[in-house]
Design a protein around this nucleic acid. Structure first.
Lengths: 108, 108
DNA sequence: TCCTTTCATCGATATCCGTCGATGTTATAT
DNA sequence: ATATAACATCGACGGATATCGATGAAAGGA
């Protein structure tokens, strides 16, 4: 258990604040929402327009409608997207602040 | 399957390039490497120093040594960290370009 | 040489995740 | 009222994942 003492026993160095347990849990939860190719594509799709109808998403991806709905729910619960219903259709859009927060966690 | 024609049948709009399948697969794979609180903490730890010895990581986290080694392998295979062995000890460091690439995927 | 330490890999297990068909709900059309 | 369409939820199933103990490989010390 001995080691070269370049670092204190508890990570991390002085420059970067060590993350608290809640902080790293929340970050991991949000990255997990992006840990699927379909969800990455959905985010990319939403980033190209103010709003996108779910029917456009189900038509774009070669997946069943329940599966697309499942992925949207995960993105919604992670706070990365939000939705509103108008009549029969549901429209999804990005939550830019949430995306920016993730980007901030990856460095200045 | 009819829908209001605000978007072309195939996502996405003109401003953002639609991701190719390999692109979204690789992005998802890298985000997946960050989809765990321990791995987020490891990345945060590495961001505070040029190099960190594995023995410091096993001492920091309340996990068995094989588990920490497992997480390091996942980060290594995702290209987010790299390691070098000097004598008995193994030292890990960030791959800054990989982190920057992820940050770029989340917007300018 | 033998023992200890560090780290990686293996094998096993419990849990989580992506996917789908079936079903329910709400709104529009006939 | 009935039918149709869009979307969400449920239940189930197969594959992936996090964790651990045991083991192996390589280096250093007695």
């Amino acid at each position: 258990m001995k080691s070269i003492a370049v670092l204190p026993a508890i990570c991390c160095g002085p420059e970067t604040e060590p993350l608290t347990v809640p902080e790293r849990d929340e970050l991991a939860a949000r990255f997990k929402a992006l840990a699927d190719p379909t969800r990455v594509a959905i985010i990319n799709c939403l980033s190209s327009a103010d709003e996108v109808c779910v029917c456009n998403l189900t038509a774009t991806f070669d997946l069943s409608q329940p599966t697309v709905s499942h992925h949207l729910k995960i993105l919604r619960e992670a706070g990365l997207v939000e939705s509103s219903r108008r009549g029969t259709w549901a429209y999804y859009r990005l939550v830019p602040e949430a995306i920016a927060a993730l980007r901030g966690a990856l460095g200045a």
